[in-house]
Every structure is written in C-alpha cells, then in structure tokens.
C-alpha cells in the first residue's frame, strides 16, 4: 500500500513541476512566472518529503527546510527585481523588457 502512496505523490509532484515549468515558459507576467518558479520548488520539496517517508530517513525533510529558507530569500530578491523592472519600464510584462535582444 505504501508503494502506491509514494507513486501517487511522485506523480502529483511531476504534474506540479510540469505546470510550473510550462508557466515560466509560457506566461509573460513576471509575478505569475515567479509563482510558477515557487510551484516548481515546492514540487521538488514534495518529492523529497515523499522519499524521506518511503525510506524512513530525515535527510530529505532537513533538505526541504533549506529549500524553503532559500526560497524565502529568493522571493525577497525576486520581488525586488520585479519592482526595479517596473520602475524602469512601467510594466512587468517580459515582452516589454527586451533590451538585450540580438
């Protein structure tokens, strides 16, 4: 029974990760892209927790805490960047920010 639960969570995590990745690739609103990145991070967290439960070890769960801490820092930096972009371009759409187009 335990194996099916693991499979279910891994599947869920894969779906979440794919959604996140697709969101980053497709959407042009930076805040949405940002949330999608968070989604991907949490999908990975879910995987780590799942394996941690499966093998009865705490390493995975410890790692999740690190990821969450880093994600919090990343959120601060990322939001600051978005704010700075908005101040310069009066937009947070990536389609409006293309100065480095070759």
């Amino acid at each position: 029974m335990a194996i099916e639960v693991t499979e279910f969570y891994l599947l869920l995590s894969a779906v979440l990760f794919t959604l996140g990745a697709l969101g980053v690739m497709i959407r042009s609103n930076t805040i949405v892209m940002f949330m999608c990145v968070e989604l991907m991070l949490n999908a990975v967290n879910l995987t780590l927790v799942t394996f941690s439960r499966q093998f009865g070890e705490v390493h995975g769960q410890v790692f999740v805490f690190f990821v969450m801490a880093v994600a919090a820092a990343e959120a601060a930096v990322g939001l600051a960047i978005i704010l700075a972009v908005f101040r310069n371009y009066f937009s947070i759409q990536t389609s409006d920010v293309h100065d480095l187009a070759g």
Binding site: M25, R27, T94, S95, H98, D99, A101, G102
Partner: peptide
C-alpha cells in the same frame, strides 16, 4: 547566426535552459 538566439524573450531562454 548565434545572435538570433537572443530574441529578448525570457520564455524562450527558459525553454532553452530546460
């Protein structure tokens, strides 16, 4: 040739990264 890869669209960069 290679400069065409820099189209300024973040989505395509991410796609390439993936």
């Amino acid at each position: 040739v290679t400069r065409r890869m820099h189209n300024g669209k973040i989505g395509s960069y991410v796609m390439l990264m993936f």
